[in-house]
Nucleic acid binder design. Structure first.
Lengths: 350, 350
DNA sequence: AACCATGAGGAAATCGATTGCCTAGACGCT
DNA sequence: AGCGTCTAGGCAATCGATTTCCTCATGGTT
């Protein structure tokens, strides 16, 4: 063991170590020689104070390492500067980017986020909702791992709610969702642009909103260009296994496909593997486009996978911004679809 | 559009819709015909009250949909029943399971979690720390995406801190970490058990704690059984690309390897792909064991990948439990390593 | 000199729940 | 009857910060 430099102990001037016992505003006021009310005004930029007084209070606060007690503040003001985020996406694949986006939008306004993982359990969800109310959050963001519309989380709730990624079945609710049809159109147009004409679509379960929306948009885009799909849409699962299986189907039907638009990166990856194994060149013989732009998948795929990015962070940011607007009295309603973008990689490189 | 059944509006008996305007304990007290103090005691099971009075208050609370204002309560009691979780793992690959485990341990005690993503930025981290203090969290869990020990997040903090997954360089701090050496031992013993003797180890960067610890444990376990490693440990990255590259190295050295223990599932997957491509049978010619047991990787791999599971949820749960203990006055110190388990799959099936 | 406007800062109420202390009955005992 | 002892529940202080009134000075005006 090398000798570890002894950690700073008692000296810390204005480090966090000074906060050993909570410093209150009255201590700050006492040190600055003013009343607590004045101290409050000084620190919040309110009231009519001489600049030097204000400065004296601020320095006292600095010196003592004062941090206002959020509970006391919110008891008085009614605002907690906190929002709740309820997700059903235990994996975090979608909710983490959403969270990051939301943090960006809220962090600027000094707000914090309670993350609650309801794990697809309605009981748990209602329970979390209750605790969020008890904590008097200023607003709630609801999200999940599927884009299907869901029943509203509650009726006539005391705080604004914004749905992110998923949407609410109630059109009066505010939802921010990816424009999946737009994403599909981008994918198809990209494949057309690189000269492919025999395009298939392999996607997830037909009862998933995402699958059908993307499929329809893909079909319509093709039709718009006067191109017929190489095969009917193949519905299956969101997994690599299904991608591999679908590759077998495409090969055996002799459809002579030169491109496949896939409903997810995992499906695309399964296809890539199986097609390569069968002797097909990617993108030479078959070009591939995935969906989600999931880093580990698009990079792990051989060749690297072109994919549609739904800009989850952007959705999180938008949702948080709309929530803020609602909190401040100007609520938005309805579904707001945000466009994604296509990230071209080797699997469609000409 | 089918006609949507009009949502319950004014009638809602005890649904959440009743909570339109915050119900306070004095309203409950008034309805029950008691004082607020008595109401408080009734609802919290304190004081000496006639059972019927207690019941009357509870029913009044129920009827009004009363939920106590957490800010007011914590102002009085000094407890917020809230913990902060600071992570540097923007991806969420590790922090989400940790969060879920922690939620399990804390949820039973009705606590909530503030999730703060510091994104590897020390400034951001200190900023979050400050807001957590202002919110008077009862404790803090610090985590990250690497198991390397990190500098303590602060010295002499006013609340207990537990490090989960990562550990603190200060031995007086409490850390709950995966027993990676144990995981490596399990992997090696498993390979030995299925009769493999020419075992290689491919892992991440040498400057990562995880990589070296696992490598050393693997070597020692082999040595303990009197087996020499088929090759020196191959250090690289945690990626599939490195796995593929490593496969090439193993093949070209003619080391005649019959098993590879990989430092991550992604590395294993890269190896699997490249080895298969080179005509090797898995597990026939070469058996593979990964690390992390990351569902999409182990399932996407062909064949399905045997892997070491670090039980992240369990670590999150333990960390939360130790944090609770510390909050309640019996803090633990030092590093607590939790064993993982090996999940056998096709890549090592005999 | 008298008056008023303005600036600076203090005093105290307030938010909602908790809790220690106190009191009014009820009861029992001598 | 008198006294002590419980019991049930009310009263009011308290937590910490904000905010609404006030109250002094001060200085400018006529």
């Amino acid at each position: 063991m090398t000798s570890v430099p002894e950690t700073v102990q008692e000296t810390g001037e204005e480090t966090l170590s000074t906060m050993d016992r909570a410093v209150t505003i009255s201590q700050v006021a006492a040190l600055a020689g003013v009343s607590t009310g004045t101290a409050s005004k000084a620190l919040n930029g309110r009231g009519a104070l001489r600049p030097e007084t204000r400065l004296r209070v601020q320095q006292a606060a600095e010196q003592l390492g004062f941090v206002a007690n959020a509970a006391a503040r919110s008891l008085q003001t009614g605002r907690t500067y906190t929002v709740g985020m309820i997700t059903t996406d235990s994996i975090g694949r979608f909710s983490i980017p959403l969270l990051i986006g939301a943090e960006d939008a809220l962090g600027a306004g000094q707000m914090s986020i309670f993350l609650c993982d309801a794990r697809d359990d309605p009981i748990r969800e209602q329970y979390y909702l209750r605790t969020l109310f008890s904590r008097k959050v200023d607003g709630i963001i609801v999200t999940g791992r599927r884009t299907d519309a869901r029943a509203p989380i509650g009726i006539g709730l005391p705080v604004p709610v914004v749905y992110a990624f998923i949407s609410s079945t109630d059109p009066r609710d505010c939802s921010v969702v990816p424009d999946e049809a737009d994403g599909a159109r981008r994918a198809i147009r990209h494949l057309l642009a690189i000269g492919r004409r025999r395009i298939a679509h392999v996607t997830g379960p037909e009862h998933h909103h995402s699958a059908t929306v993307r499929a329809r948009a893909a079909e319509e885009t093709l039709a718009g260009e006067g191109v017929r799909p190489a095969t009917p849409t193949l519905y299956g699962e969101w997994s690599e296994a299904w991608g591999r299986q679908a590759a077998g189907i495409l090969l055996s039907t002799g459809a002579d496909v030169d491109a496949v638009f896939c409903g997810s990166d995992q499906i695309a990856r399964g296809l890539a593997e199986a097609l390569t194994k069968a002797g097909k060149q990617i993108p030479g013989d078959v070009a591939l486009v995935g969906f989600d732009n999931w880093d580990v998948m698009v990079e792990g795929c051989q060749p690297a996978l072109t994919s549609v990015d739904m800009d989850l962070e952007g959705i999180g940011r938008s949702a948080a911004e709309m929530l803020l607007a609602a909190i401040n009295g100007t609520p938005a309603h309805g579904r707001h679809a945000r466009p994604g973008r296509l990230i071209p990689r080797a699997s469609t490189a000409v």
